[in-house]
Amino acid sequence: MLKEELVKKNPLRVLHPAQGDACPDYRMGLVIARAGLGKTAILVQIALDSIMRGQKVLHVSIGQSLEKAKAWYDDIFRHLVEGQSSEKVVALDEDVLRSRMIMTFKESSFSRPKLEERLNDLVYQNIFRPDCVVVDGLDFTAADRDSLLDLRELMVAMNVQVWFSALSHRDDTRVSTDGIPAPCHEVGDLFDTVILLQAEQQGIRLEIIKDTTGCASPEVALMLDPSTMMVKAV
């Protein structure tokens, strides 16, 4: 009950309508922004929204600790269920814990074969079968097109959707023809949906600059509340 309510009122419905059957099972999404604008917060909200929709999520954190990733989930979850009765929240919290797994890698040790090996460990032993994978902290300046293609193939083969975060830099002004900034300007075609975060006077604006799935509604204006880091419709 609570889950349905949370799914319904989540502004992220613009990415994925509640009746999402028309959307493909796999989707490669990208959240791109400059440092400190809230990429991780968006990824965690996308992950929690998937969990609320009954999916299992694998959160891959590159270069950050397990504790930090857990703290993000705790924080965002707390905001999400604000004002709900504590009994329902406790039950839901347990549900979230069962539907989420976090893997952290060192920057230097992350690669597609490694991720595949870890995923196989989970899937073959029936420990955890993710429907959605979020990858936070991948260094796109060092990731070549082949390795991303590789990752896309893996996700398609496993029938999961995957969301990445990418860090852009103020001094790198290169942009692809469809408006995707560096360092992803040359690999933008690999992504089905791209969200750009931009700092504005009123807060941080989420702009869906690309969507080929037909599920998203780019015309809806979304902002990130800087005090809670929660997405809200404006």
Binding site: L66, A69, K70, R98, M101, I102, T104, S108, R118, I127
Partner: peptide, 10 residues
């Protein structure tokens, strides 16, 4: 058990 997460070092 619920596996909360894994941390991979070198």
């Amino acid at each position: 058990g619920i596996i909360v997460g894994t941390m991979e070092e070198s």
